Simulated assay, not measured.
Amino acid sequence: MAHDWAGKTLGIDFGTSNSAAGVAVAGKPYLIPIEQGAPTLPTSVFFGVGASQMSMGSAANRALIAGEEGRYMRALKSVLGTSLMGEMRMFLGEKMNFYDIIGAFLSQVKSRAEAQCHQIFDYVLSGRPVRFHSADEDRNARAEADLVECYMRAGFKDLRFLVEPEAAALASGVPRGPGLSLIVDIGGGTSDFCVFRMADGIEVLANSGIRMGGTNFDKRLSLDHVMPLLGKGALIRNEMGKGAMATPNSLFQKLATWEQIPFLYAGDVKRDVAKMVRLAVEPKPMERLFEVLDMEL
């Protein structure tokens, strides 16, 4: 369907770690201050106990650091294309899934941009990684469809995508002339690459990307240095008979993955960990783990 995109289009970079929004003003890009005069905001949300709406960005980070009671979530983009998107959980007294949460986040970005620009944005030009998932075409297609659904829930009527390294190439200011240029965009969840040259305009020769970024390094540090203090690798005695086995690795993989942490606060997980505390050869690390889950730390 043909639309009049001029003047009604908001550019959004929905990032794993940070997000931004902008418009074209007299042919030049302008980043909209959508949070406290800043051109970017953290891609994080917080659902406080007793709150009527979620906090986002720096407000969500402050709530976490202050130790407020509630659920903190970040790296939301990493969930796109996974089975977690449709899983329902209770937030703010109602059942929500990641379509609802990401849609609400993007809706806030839209509303803040509209308030700053004093106009309504019906359409969105969204950045996207070259590949959401490194080697799985079905999951890549599903991730893009998930993001489209989230933008529709945010209130946009239609959208177009621009792969992130190509957007960076357009904004790079590389002068015209012979020779090739390479954009390297290492993000929170993905790393993208674009080979291009400038002639009469930008000529993109190749785009590629992998699902590896800053959150992978966070996770590796957490697994290697934090999770052993919470029982990773600890021995749990068998309930019947002799012998012992190591704690399930999947538990610590999830606890070290930002977008999966809130799902470990469920009652059945806490009951399983409480049993591990009783059967642990060395109870102290497992006691720490139970406290982290029970207090939602």
Rank of each mutant, 00 (worst) to 15 (best):
K28P: 05
R160A: 15
M88C: 15
A104Y: 06
L297S: 07
T16Y: 07
K28F: 15
G15A: 01
D200I: 06
V148E: 04
A60M: 14
S83Q: 14
S19N: 08
R220Y: 12
N18H: 08
N207E: 07
R131C: 14
G233N: 09
S222F: 12
V79Y: 07
F121C: 01
C194E: 01
E203V: 00
Q253E: 15
F196Y: 03
G70R: 15
A280S: 00
F290I: 01
G15H: 08
L279F: 01
N18D: 09
Y72W: 06
P42S: 10
Y151W: 12
M56P: 14
G127C: 07
T9Y: 12
A63Q: 07
I34S: 00
D294F: 13
M245W: 11
L221I: 14
Q119P: 14
A60Y: 13
P165M: 03
L84T: 11
G233A: 11
F132G: 09
F121T: 02
I261L: 07
A6M: 09
L106N: 06
G267R: 07
G103Y: 06
F98E: 09
V124T: 11
R271C: 13
F290P: 12
G70K: 03
L80G: 03
A199L: 04
R176M: 03
T215W: 05
L147P: 09
A6L: 09
E296R: 13
H3T: 02
L64R: 10
I186P: 15
G67T: 13
A280R: 08
I210N: 02
A26D: 13
T215Q: 01
A199D: 09
G48H: 08
A113W: 14
C150G: 05
E239V: 09
A135R: 06
G173F: 12
G57W: 00
A59I: 14
R237F: 06
V292R: 04
R271Q: 04
D200L: 12
G177M: 05
E203P: 15
M85F: 08
L125Y: 10
G50I: 01
M286T: 08
R237C: 03
D146S: 03
A199E: 14
V148P: 11
G201R: 12
G233D: 08
K157L: 03
R197E: 07
D200P: 01
E164W: 06
A38P: 15
V292Q: 00
L162A: 13
N249K: 12
K254E: 00
V204M: 09
G103E: 02
F263I: 10
R278G: 15
R153N: 10
S208E: 08
D272R: 13
V269E: 00
D100E: 04
M286F: 06
F193I: 10
R271K: 03
E203D: 14
V195Y: 05
N249I: 11
I101H: 02
V195E: 06
A168M: 07
D268C: 12
K270A: 13
S250M: 11
G155D: 01
Q260W: 02
M1A: 08
N216M: 00
A26G: 14
L41S: 09
M212P: 13
V195D: 03
K157P: 12
E144I: 08
A154S: 10
D13W: 07
N61M: 11
L64K: 04
F98R: 05
G127S: 09
